[in-house]
Write a protein that binds this DNA or RNA. Structure first.
Lengths: 344, 344
DNA sequence: CCAACGTTTGGGAACGTACCCACCAGACTA
DNA sequence: TAGTCTGGTGGGTACGTTCCCAAACGTTGG
C-alpha cells in the first residue's frame, strides 16, 4: 500500500537543501530564519506531507502536551450523573484551544488506582485534574509531593493547599432551605452525600445553618446519609420517613438522590409537593423531567470544568504560579416539587 | 525540595552492578536473566524508585499504548445523552485491563477536527475509536487510508468496511412499534434522528417495516425529523401534531427526543398514554423518571463500548486481523407512557 | 581595507529506551 | 583434552527531535 516510511526532519532538510536545525526553527516559529530558507522548508514540508513526531519531541523537551482528567468511579456514577459529562465538556473546550491532549482515567478499584499513579510517575502527562476527591484520598498528596501541577474540582477539606474550584455549595444549600422555609415548611430533613467528601459536608452545613438561623431544629434525626446514587437517595428517604413520618420537606444534596427520594415518597403514599416538598442539587436534565419537576440548585458545572483546565494550564506554563481557589456562584431554580411558583 | 533527577535505566544498571540491557530485560520480563542479576536489578529499581520513561520507550518501539476515543459533539449532546458516558465507561473498563491509555477527543468544529487529524497523523495513538459517525464523515476514510486501526460504534452505511459494533436498531424499533400496535394504536408516527446517520435511518426503517407488515400506512406525513436533542424532539412533535391532530402513538428514536415530545404533548393538552402513547429508545435514566415513565428500547451501551475497545486492541495487536462487525441485541422495557402493563 | 558586529546556519551533542550482535563462562560432547 | 553448544551479559547504535555552540556570511564603521 504505497505506505512509505514517514518523513523525518532530516528528510525535509535534505529536500529543502538546508540543515536539520533550520527546519526545526521553522517548525517552532523561530524568527531567526531567512525568508528564503523558510519558504524552502515550508514547501518541502508540504510536498513530503511531513508531520513532526511528538514522541521524539517529548523526549527532549520532557513535555507531553497532555493532561490527565481523573474520575473516581467506584460508585459507577458516571452515566447517571450528568455532572461528569459537563465537567469533561468544559475541560475539553479549554484544552482544545491550546492543543493539549486529554487523557481520561476512570478509577474504579485499587488496581486502577495503582495504574494511575504509575502512569503519572511515568510522566506521561504534564498535569492532573482531579474530580470528586474524598477527604483521605492519598492521590492529591502524592501528586503534590511529586511536584506535578494539579488542580481539583472540589476540595479535600476547608484547608486545601492545592488549587481548586468548586461552587458555593454551602450558600446553594442554604438558599434551597430558605426557599423551603419561605413556602411555610418547618420540618426540613436532608439527604446528604458521603460525608468524607467536602461537597457533601458543605451542603449539609448550608442546610444546618439556614435552619439554625431561622431558629428551627437541625438535629441528627433530620439527617440521612446517602451516597449520591438513586438507590441511596431512596433508602435514605425511607429511613427518614420511618423516623419522622410528619416531615414536610427534604433537601437532597443531588438531583439523582432527589429523584430516588421522589420514588420512595410516592411509594409511601405522600404527594409532592402537597405533603412533602423536595429540592435537589445540580439542576441536571433529570430535574426538568422528573415527576413532578424538581426544584434544584443550579451550579455552573461546565464552567467548573473550564476553570480547572485553565488554572492547570497556567500552572503547567509557570509552576511558580501561586495556588488559587475559585468559588463559583449557584442559583436556585424553582419548579413544582417545592410548591413554589414554577419557573418552567 | 530534594527533587532529585529522575533515575534512568543507566542509574539502575550502575546501582545493580549490571549492564543497561540486563535492566531492560528485567523490566520487559525476558527469561534470559539469571536469578541473581534479576534480584539485584529489582532491588535497585525499588531503592531508586525507578519508573521507565514511556516516552523514550515509545520513541524506539513506535507504540504509544494509547488509543483515541473520538466523540463528535456538534450538537452538544454529551451531557444530555447518557449514551456517551456509558460508552466511555465500557471502553475504559477494557482498556484498563491492558494498561492502555484513553485519549478523549471531543470534536465540535472544523478547527478541532483538523487538530484531531493532525494528532492522529503524529501517531500519538495506536488506534482510534469513532462514536456516532455521520454518513459522509471523511474521518473514517482518512484513518483507513493511513492504515491506523479503527473501530466504529455505529456505521456509515449498510456497507461498512471498517470494523464496527452497533445494536439491533432496526429490530428494536420494530419491536417498539409492534408493542404500540398491540396496545391497539393505529396511527403511529415517528420522530427520527438526523438521517445522515445510520442509527437514525435504521430505526426509521424498523418503524416502517413493522407498520407495513401490519398493513398500516407509513407515509411521510407520519415522519418528523429530529436531531437527537430535546428541543428537536419537541419541535418534531409540534409539527406532527399540526399535520396529524389525530395520531395516537409516537415512536421517538431517542429518549431525549421522547421527553421533548412529552413536554409538547402536555402543552397541547394531550394525555399520555390515554390520547397518545410514546416509546423512546435508549432506556436511559431519563426514561425511568419522566412523567409518565417512558417505555423505551434498551440497548447495551456499555457493552458497545467494551466491544469496540476489545476489537480495537485485537487489531492493534495484529493488524492483519480481518475486519468484523458485531450486532448486539435490544430489549423493550415497557412503562406507563405506552399504556401497556408497566414493568416498574 | 580591515576589524568588529549581527544575522543566519548547521553539526554535534543529548534525551532514555529497545534491539542487534558479539562475547564470555561453563557444561557437555566427542 | 579440545571442541561445541547454550544460557547470560553488556556495549554500540538507532529512534526523531531540540538545544548548544561555533562557523560562515554579509554589513557597517573607522
Amino acid at each position: 500500500m504505497g505506505e512509505r516510511q514517514r518523513p523525518t526532519i532530516k528528510t525535509v532538510a535534505a529536500r529543502a537543501g538546508v540543515g536539520r536545525t533550520t527546519v526545526s526553527r521553522v517548525i517552532n516559529g523561530s524568527e531567526l530564519v531567512s525568508d528564503k530558507a523558510k519558504a524552502a522548508v515550508l514547501a518541502a514540508i508540504a510536498e513530503l506531507n511531513y508531520v513532526p513526531n511528538s514522541v521524539a519531541r517529548g523526549l527532549v523537551t520532557s513535555k507531553t502536551n497532555s493532561v490527565a482528567l481523573v474520575i473516581p468511579e467506584s460508585e459507577s456514577r458516571l452515566g447517571s450523573e450528568p455532572y461528569f459529562s459537563a465537567v469533561i465538556r468544559g475541560v475539553s473546550t479549554v484544552l482544545a484551544e491550546t492543543r493539549t491532549q486529554l487523557q481520561l482515567m476512570l478509577v474504579r478499584d485499587q488496581g486502577e488506582r495503582d495504574q494511575l499513579t504509575a502512569s503519572v510517575a511515568e510522566r506521561r502527562v504534564d498535569g492532573v485534574l482531579l474530580v470528586s476527591v474524598h477527604e483521605h484520598d492519598p492521590l492529591p498528596g502524592m501528586l503534590e509531593e511529586m511536584g506535578l501541577p494539579t488542580v481539583l474540582a472540589g476540595r479535600r477539606g476547608r484547608q486545601e493547599p492545592l488549587s481548586h474550584v468548586h461552587s458555593d455549595n454551602e450558600g446553594g444549600a442554604a438558599a434551597a432551605v430558605r426557599h423551603l422555609l419561605d413556602q411555610g415548611r418547618t420540618k426540613v430533613a436532608t439527604i446528604t452525600g458521603p460525608l468524607d467528601m467536602d461537597v457533601a459536608r458543605s451542603r449539609l452545613q448550608g442546610w444546618r445553618e439556614a435552619l439554625e438561623r431561622a431558629g428551627l431544629p437541625a438535629g441528627p434525626e433530620l439527617v440521612a446519609r446517602g451516597d449520591f446514587t438513586e438507590d441511596g437517595g431512596r433508602a435514605a428517604m425511607r429511613s427518614l420517613l420511618e423516623q419522622l413520618p410528619d416531615l414536610d420537606a427534604v433537601f437532597a444534596a443531588s438531583d439523582v438522590m432527589a429523584v430516588g427520594a421522589l420514588l420512595e415518597l410516592r411509594r409511601s403514599g405522600r404527594r409532592v409537593p402537597d405533603d412533602v416538598a423536595v429540592v435537589g442539587f445540580d439542576d441536571s436534565i433529570l430535574a426538568r423531567h422528573s415527576n413532578p419537576p424538581l426544584t434544584s440548585v443550579s451550579q455552573p458545572v461546565e464552567k467548573i470544568g473550564s476553570t480547572i483546565a485553565r488554572l492547570l494550564l497556567e500552572e503547567i506554563d509557570d509552576p511558580r504560579t501561586p495556588r488559587r481557589h475559585v468559588v463559583l456562584p449557584t442559583r436556585l431554580v424553582v419548579r413544582e416539587s417545592s410548591g413554589g411558583p414554577s419557573a418552567d
